[in-house]
Amino acid sequence: MVEYRIDRRSGVSTYVQIVQQTKQALRLGLLEPGDRLPTAREVVEATAINPNTVLKAYRELEREGLVEARRGLGTFVRRSLGTAPAAESPLRDELDAWAGRAREAGLDRDDMAALFTAVLEKHFQGDLT
């Protein structure tokens, strides 16, 4: 069973946090097909968030085909997600080389983080906000 941690100061909307944490649990294998997600009541009792927010997140996960609601029984995982690229993947190597070049060019840690975030935002503009 997954337990959600809601960070109200993160600037990420609450339902997106639930969607992301569920996906993270799927990637890490903490949730597997057939597992039940906590009921809206269980989530809101622990987190004090609005029940409609939980239902909205579950609808989003359902729309993506990751979970299914079974009437009167709860919401169940349908399929797992591929694991994140492992330590030696080509994508990671490219990013590693980029970070090396950026550092040589005089960028510090914050500069690089800001640049990376800006590029991510450009690619995912309009998604999940």
Partner: peptide
């Protein structure tokens, strides 16, 4: 805790 109780009542 009490906000959680209220939300669970609503749910």
């Amino acid at each position: 805790e009490l906000m959680g109780v209220l939300m669970s009542q609503a749910a």
